[in-house]
């Protein structure tokens, strides 16, 4: 597995060689700094800890500042771990978007936009009552029955109801790297990725 942390910039569309218009997302990916190399011997598992985005030194705890200093870098805002990473990098080395090639399949992990408290129709795709007449009064988007009365006499765990929606970590698989601009650290990925513009995403494969 290999990966890089990035910032979602926004969406656009480009024309590919065959003349087809493809919707794609621009991600400012990297450069990320390797802040720790974990191995089976020392930590029990193999992983690469990478950091991305500048943070103010005055807002960073001293322990973290020393951790970044050990990697010979400035304080970073996002730190993530790549387990069983196929990239061999030493402490303090940087990872750039050229680890990916154009046309490669990748998956993107991000946090979806928060939707707030939503009903079952939007949150779980319930169809609602479906009719406005025949005595429905004002419950067209109601969930209906949530269980039997005499049996089971309780509500089953995991019953889908209204509640907070969005803000979940979601992985979108099988997206394609359309284009890479190595000098600007921009990666163009086909389709949409989770989260709002400016949110942090992890591109991996």
């Amino acid at each position: 597995m290999k990966g890089i942390i990035g910032k979602k910039i926004g969406m656009t569309s480009i024309f590919e060689a065959n003349g087809k218009q493809t919707a794609c997302t621009i991600i400012e990916a990297g450069p990320c700094v390797v802040t720790q190399v974990k191995t089976v011997d020392s930590d029990g598992y193999d992983a690469l800890q990478i950091a991305f985005g500048e943070a103010k030194a005055k807002n960073t705890p001293k322990a973290q500042i020393h951790h970044f200093n050990a990697a010979n870098t400035t304080p970073k805002s996002v730190v993530k771990e790549l387990r069983n990473c196929s990239i061999t990098k030493q402490l303090g080395e940087s990872i750039t978007c050229d680890i990916f090639a154009e046309g490669e399949k990748v998956s993107v992990i991000g946090t979806t936009k928060g939707k707030g408290f939503q009903g079952v129709v939007k949150r779980h795709g319930f169809s609602g009552v479906g009719e406005a007449t025949h005595g429905q009064h004002d419950r067209q988007r109601a969930p209906g029955s949530i269980g039997g009365s005499s049996y089971p006499s309780r509500v089953f765990k995991g019953m889908r109801m209204a509640g907070r929606m969005g803000g979940d970590s979601v992985k979108v698989k099988a997206l394609r790297v359309v284009k890479i601009f190595p000098e600007q650290n921009y990666i163009l990925i086909s389709g949409s990725v989770p989260g709002h513009n400016g949110s942090i995403v992890l591109i991996q494969n």
């Binding site: 926004g10 656009t12 480009i14 024309f15 621009i26 284009k179 601009f181 921009y186």
Partner: peptide, 12 residues
Amino acid sequence: MDAIVFVHQQLN
């Protein structure tokens, strides 16, 4: 937004 403008300039 500048990034989107840049990408279009490169592609077009």
